[in-house]
Structures are given as C-alpha cells and as structure tokens.
Computed example of a mutant assay.
Amino acid sequence: MLEPVRVLLEQVTSPFVTRTAREVGRQLREGTAADRLRHRLTARLATVALADIRDPGRWLLGVALPRWGCGHQDCETGIIWRTGAACELCAETVQDRFAARRREQRLEQGLCPQHGTRPGPSRHCADCELEAAVRLPARAPAPREPAGPNRCSCGGCGCVIFLTGRAVDTGLCKLCREEADARADVEPAAPAAPTVPGTCSGRDGESPCTRRALPTRSVCLTHRSWELDGEVA
C-alpha cells in the first residue's frame, strides 16, 4: 500500500515513520480501503516533484495521507470513490467560491456584481433596470384583523368599521347599508299570507272576500258557503 511513496519513507526518520504508520492504521480501521489509500498516495505524488519535497515526513502526514473532499466519507477529492461520479456537494462549493470571487472582482472594478456591466446614473445597470421593469408586482399584504372591542369587519366588503349607530344592528358599513336599502326599494315585497282568522279561502276573481266569523263555523257572505275548521264546505 505504501509502495508509491517508498522512496520518501527511506528518507524519513523513525518518529515520522511511526506517526505515518499510525495514521494509515487509523484510516484502515475507519473503513478506508487499502486500494483507495494506494491510489491517493500515487495521485498526490504525481502532482509534485521529488526535489520540491523538503521534509518527506511532514509531506506524507500533511499532504499525501489526508482525505480531501467534502463531509461525505466516500468523497475522494471531489469524486465519489465507489461510483466514480462527480460529487455534487463539492461542485456546489466550487461554484459558490467562484461566484464570490467574481462578485468581489466586479465590485472592485465598479461593475454590477450580478451582470458585470457598467451601472448608469441610477446606480443600476441596464439589465437590472429591465428585470425590475418586468418583475411582477408584489402581492398586496393581507388586511389586518380588527383590534379592539369597538371594531369589526363589514359583512359586505370586509373593511374595518366602528360599531356605532346602525352598524351595531346591521354589521355593515355606510356604503353597504345604502346599497342594501336601494335593493330593498327596487325588489317587490313578497305577498304576505293571510293571518287574520275568518278570511274566506275562496276568491271572487281578484281579492279574498270577507265573511262573518262564528264560534264553531263561519259562512262566506259573498259565496254563501260554510267553512268548518278552516275549510270551505
């Protein structure tokens, strides 16, 4: 497993050899595969010249053996070890860092941090003004609930009204009361059912006739018919 860095191990003093062996054993106990460690050492050594490694022991412990990647245990320098696919978390981190650096550079150059264009007299670039023009209007805030014992919502339009005068009985604002009164004047009232006892149930063509009521029975003076218990004989 340590064959790729054997040339460096020969240059390391005994304390660093012991620490390197302990680090390798710790990673193996935590589930890191031996071929994964071997691949990591080979890849790290391929990115540096041997002449540039001044302290082999520190390089092995600080550069060659540590796992690089995100919090995903299977991530190996931005690559998922088991599948070989790119790590999405690492890709998002790289994009966020790139966007932050680009924003800082644009701010230093006096450009729009979002579009990278020169702002106009309004301190906004043309793209920002266009987006603001076509942006949908914000939704109106929901009406607040009436507070206090002397306030309520109108039953017609929902506006907040004070419970005074006719509003106490109707629960409507002035405009809604006027509209209700206007509709009541226009709409014809339904004919009321006869409630006076002694009215003849027969009709002479236009209106009920009148009769004289008796204690047990009544007779219709117009139709000359008897009525028993509310029914015309």
Rank of each mutant, 00 (worst) to 15 (best):
C112H: 05
A132S: 10
A64M: 04
L60Y: 06
H72N: 14
G155K: 00
L130M: 07
H39Q: 14
G57Q: 08
I79C: 13
A43G: 03
R58D: 15
P119F: 04
P113I: 05
R29W: 08
P113D: 11
L107W: 00
P113S: 06
A142H: 09
Q114M: 01
F162W: 12
A49W: 00
C128M: 08
W68H: 15
R106L: 05
G156E: 05
R118T: 13
A46F: 06
T83L: 12
L50I: 10
R151A: 07
T77Q: 09
A140Q: 11
R144N: 05
C75N: 11
L111V: 03
C159D: 13
A142W: 02
H39Y: 14
G110C: 09
A46C: 08
F162Q: 09
I80F: 07
D127N: 10
R139L: 11
P121S: 10
L41Y: 10
R82A: 15
W68V: 14
A99D: 12
I80G: 08
L37G: 04
C154Y: 09
G116Q: 05
A140F: 01
G69L: 06
L60K: 08
N150L: 14
G148Q: 13
G148I: 03
P149C: 02
P141I: 00
R54T: 15
W68D: 14
I161Y: 06
L163R: 15
G110V: 01
P113W: 01
R139N: 01
D127I: 07
D127R: 10
G31L: 06
Q73F: 11
G155F: 01
C152R: 14
R123G: 12
L89M: 05
A33D: 14
R101G: 04
I53D: 04
E88C: 00
R82G: 05
P137D: 06
R101Q: 11
T93N: 10
L89K: 08
R40I: 02
R44Q: 15
L45M: 09
A49H: 12
A126I: 12
H115E: 10
R67N: 07
